[in-house]
Design a protein around this nucleic acid. Structure first.
Lengths: 186, 186
DNA sequence: GCATCGGGAGAACGATCGTTCTCCCGTCCG
DNA sequence: CGGACGGGAGAACGATCGTTCTCCCGATGC
């Protein structure tokens, strides 16, 4: 296993374990066992756990932005449908087995108070979602406040879906988003 | 200091420290130092940290339900205004110094994956908020789905306000809630 | 073939965790 | 006045954490 494959395996495993159990409950030894990457290699790839946590979040941030953009690109019907499609994307995410909420919301809750870089990452990540929604509402000529409201619906859906374990909030948020969009585009 | 006062001091201190730093980052020794209650008394009041965490969350749950009901009782203008008033209440909460989000959302993020009782408590707590909103929308003759949507706005506002550190999401959510209420009561 | 080097397995280290125990002092009851 | 008792301070304990070190093996270059 070369360095690149090891790094990928570590990041994949860490992302899964952090999500399942929380960051602090996953020891480096558990990560070694689960990933099959030796402790020595682990520490030469990521010199500390903090660095690893940040790397996991950064990669996740990029993956979410890419998935959001890719999902939006498949919707050719214009910004109105693209804004609503975000909630379909949320719905398929919520329905994944083991879904336990947004990694940034969860990690912020666990570490945000003591790790400023986690707070910054969460802030940037949530701003990216808002910016994506703002791009759609701007194209509709709707006021920027609408994007903030849609972002609240999306984040609320993530939280409630995570806590209740049901994907239903995605559809509820989509219905609410449609009302807000229609009212603004009136 | 009698047992009752000690318990109160422990719960107050634990709630504050858990919120500031997360649950796992607060050791029983730090709690002893910050509360002034000896380790021996601490363990005779709460036989384990798990029990203490649950007690903190249960008390917080009751306090939130009471505050919500009390705030609503001050709004005599009927269910429409009472539903909107929830977001004013959120706004004053978000503006408190050191606000870092909802304790149930944050604790679920940290421990929900490994502590089923935390998940249950968070679920019940969020259901109580939804039920309160449903009581208002029912009185308006609005469909029950509206309460779910308002709850998504409220939870989304908590998350975004916590992560960004701004109380603004309360006002944004209130504006969105008004649109949804008006559309449903049309 | 032999020396060199990177990496794997896992022991070791110091710190800290949750929890319990020891020791000691002040207080009440006879 | 004496002794039983409750509680405070904090040491002690075993476990586990993040991190480093040791030892050994297999491949690679000359």
């Amino acid at each position: 296993m070369d360095a690149e494959a090891a790094e990928l395996k570590v990041l994949d495993t860490a992302e899964r374990l952090f999500d399942e159990r929380g960051v602090q409950a996953v020891g480096m030894d558990a990560l070694r066992t689960a990933s099959g990457v030796s402790l020595k290699r682990l520490y030469q790839l990521f010199p500390s756990k903090d660095v690893l946590v940040e790397a996991v979040l950064r990669r996740r941030d990029g993956a979410v932005r890419d998935a959001l953009a890719a999902h939006g690109a498949r919707v050719a019907d214009g910004p109105y449908e693209r804004a609503l499609a975000v909630f379909d994307w949320l719905g398929s995410w919520f329905a994944e087995p083991g879904f336990r909420g947004c990694a940034f919301i969860n990690t912020f809750g666990e570490l945000g108070g003591v790790a400023p870089n986690v707070t910054t990452l969460a802030r940037d990540h949530k701003e990216a979602l808002r910016a994506y929604l703002a791009a759609q509402t701007d194209a509709l000529g709707a006021p920027p406040a609408l994007a903030d409201q849609l972002a609240l619906l999306a984040n609320g859906a993530m939280v409630v879906a995570g806590i209740t374990g049901s994907p239903e909030p995605a559809a509820q948020a989509k219905a609410a988003a449609r009302v807000l969009l229609d009212a603004a585009a009136r």
